[in-house]
């Protein structure tokens, strides 16, 4: 927009609102106090109008009333039930097409424009996405009942030294796999060996027979608990699954918002979830090539 039309638009807006938005001198333009007070609300209106346009686009594209959504396989059945009920309340006119997809599968579908919203595990490549708040599902440790650390209420990671770790296969989520091992190392636990396995029976077998340990959220523990396997908090809660709802950049609309809200509420309601922890210090090394 050229300078004169912009000035005219601002003057018209000031007349309409009945307040001055900018102080103008011959050289400078500065925003007024009144203008600053209106700014946050104006931005919000712009975001809302973008959401309206996104919804309109979906209707135009013939996808009216359908939300293609995904959840990772590790969300509990109770959480899914709660979220489906809540979503139906919030967005009665929208049909929810819900898929069980890993984070990698969700990213592929986002890239192809075949998914509207999903719950992803971090770390993941967020290019082209926007994300909701990070939710943290604390991980505790599974130990054989006679492990010395089973006597503690909060187990320091370093107390696991000397024991093998059973972890999901690295190829399933290499970034998360490496991040967990780095956090273990940072907190004084470098497993003697990492043994890859996924199924509850395999993990139980290794814990019982070879005194290996495994990490797990509390909410996935069987009730009643296994008589010989104990779940314990980790001291300082260093490990967690980090989730957030994600959607394609610029494609947020009422249905996406409703799904994001329903997922967040359901996870809060049925799982041991907390908001993300404060960010730790970050020391950039010279090879980083950037600096703030």
């Amino acid at each position: 927009m050229g300078q004169p039309p912009l000035s005219q638009r601002i003057q018209r807006l000031e007349r309409e609102l009945g307040i001055r938005l900018f102080e103008r001198s011959s050289r400078h333009v500065t925003i007024t106090h009144g203008g600053t007070l209106l700014l946050a609300e104006a931005r919000e209106i712009l975001t809302r109008s973008e959401a309206l346009l996104a919804t309109a686009r979906r209707i135009r594209d013939g996808e009216s009333g359908l939300l293609r959504a995904a959840l990772p396989p590790d969300v509990s059945g109770e959480t899914i039930a709660a979220l489906l009920a809540d979503f139906a309340d919030r967005q009665a006119g929208t049909e929810l097409e819900l898929h069980e997809l890993t984070t990698a599968q969700q990213l592929d579908r986002f890239g192809a424009g075949a998914l509207d919203v999903g719950l992803v595990h971090h770390p993941c490549d967020v290019s082209g996405l926007e994300i909701g708040p990070l939710l943290r599902r604390e991980l505790g440790v599974l130990l054989r009942h006679d492990h010395p650390a089973a006597q503690l209420t909060d187990v320091p990671l370093a107390a696991l030294t000397g024991h093998d770790l059973v972890l999901f296969p690295r190829a399933d989520a290499p970034a998360l796999h490496d991040e967990l091992l780095t956090t273990c190392a940072r907190n004084g636990y470098t497993p003697t060996a990492v043994r890859h396995g996924q199924s509850p029976s395999f993990i139980r077998g290794l814990i019982l027979s070879s005194q290996a340990v495994a990490f797990s959220p509390r909410d996935t523990q069987p009730a009643p608990p296994h008589p010989q396997i104990i779940w314990r908090h980790l001291a300082g809660t260093p490990l967690a699954w980090r989730h957030s709802v994600a959607w394609r950049q610029g494609h947020r609309d009422a249905a996406v918002d409703a799904f994001a809200e329903a997922v967040t509420q359901a996870l809060w309601g049925t799982d041991t979830v907390s908001m993300d922890q404060p960010l730790p210090p970050l020391h950039l090394r010279p090879t980083a090539e950037y600096w703030l």
Binding site: P123, E130, I131, L279, L282, W291, L292
Partner: peptide, 24 residues
């Protein structure tokens, strides 16, 4: 270029760079 990062990272500065929200 670095100024755009400083601006987008916001008041928490460098440590905000490990937050996926900042990256988006």
């Amino acid at each position: 270029l670095l100024d755009t990062i400083k601006k987008d990272a916001g008041p928490s500065g460098t440590r905000a760079l490990s937050d996926p929200h900042t990256i988006t």
